[in-house]
Design a protein around this nucleic acid. Structure first.
Lengths: 187, 187
DNA sequence: CAGCGCATGTAAGATGTTACATGATTCA
DNA sequence: TGAATCATGTAACATCTTACATGCGCTG
């Protein structure tokens, strides 16, 4: 079975961006829960075992700090790890699993009432708008910052914003359409 | 552990829409590979075992047709199944796992070359545009059809189109930005 | 010092995909 | 009749989440 998990690459990417800072598993998880969280997620159950495997394969270097009784391990990316990451970055990205529950429920809309769907859409629209506010905030912060930060995360932010706008527009239109359906159907 | 797979609900939804037609596991898979495939997917390995479980729970009714040597089973939704589906449709949809590989690679863009990212973006943009053409085709077909079909799948179609347009616009902008980056740090 | 949050993990089980096996049907 | 495709499944495996376990350091 071909190894196809993306977890090691996310870890390598984060370690590569942080270099030469040493990160613990916890740090990596925190990093992923930042901007990346808008389009990716990993759990501790993935990260910690994967870090060990990767250390065994020399993709990362482990630095053990015996801080009293409990061992504390931090990691940096190795030259081998960089090569591994670079090779993956060059491969054309495969579309992930599509599982959009909101759209699915609308698709099955004839089997529930329009009011329910309107509720779902409103809730999701509000949620997306909150995320967009956060994105806008980050973009403005980046603009005001003295040192210009890497342009790549900004591109992903703008992408998220563009998708969000399209979603909100569609949601609002669909809410109107559903409201009309509801009025029309009334006997 | 709370049962949280959405597979049974997709199956119930498809059977509900098809009612009173009887569908086999194969038919259900085919149905999902239609319009639904733009936002959902299921494999045989999920569908067939799940249909058995659901028959045992009386959410669907199995109709066995002994067509010679090989047994052939088709299914319909039961009243109990409809209740089950209706309850799920009312629950607010949870956001699925976020795993957008293209965005992730752009985020890590500083660790590869701009040309690679441009290639990824162009490929994905072309792919999305092909899907959008298909969507437009379906929408036009639905418009021309004599009997007006259910409005709900059309809503999801328009949603896909809106997202696609936003993506293509963003991709084109980002391609330009990356091309400028490559030529040299813009003033 | 008791409790809470931080930090580091692990085990179990849920979820999902892939590869394979195999009969039936169609059509060149 | 042989190949392609339709149709139905299963077993093995890969992936991922959740719930738990555990110790450390701070704070009231």
């Amino acid at each position: 079975m071909a190894r196809s998990s993306r977890t090691p690459y996310v870890i390598l990417g984060v370690l590569g961006m942080a270099h030469p800072r040493r990160l613990s598993g916890y740090d990596i998880k925190q990093a992923i829960e930042g901007i990346v969280s808008h389009f990716w997620s990993e759990s501790y159950g993935q990260i910690y075992p994967e870090l060990r495997r990767m250390a065994a394969e020399r993709l990362v270097a482990a630095h053990v700090t015996p801080t009293g009784g409990r061992r504390k391990v931090t990691y940096t990316i190795t030259a081998r790890g960089r090569k591994h990451l670079a090779a993956w970055l060059k491969k054309t990205p495969e579309p992930g699993p599509k599982r959009d529950e909101l759209t699915l429920k609308i698709f099955f809309g004839s089997q529930t009432d329009a009011g329910t769907l309107i509720g779902h859409l409103k809730k999701q629209r509000d949620h997306v708008q909150a995320l967009m506010d956060q994105n806008r905030h980050w973009l403005i912060e980046a603009d005001n910052a003295r040192d210009p930060c890497s342009p790549y995360p900004l591109m992903t932010l703008r992408g998220g914003l563009a998708m969000g706008e399209a979603f909100v527009t569609w949601a609002d239109e669909t809410i109107v359409e559903l409201a009309q359906l509801r009025k029309g159907k009334m006997p």
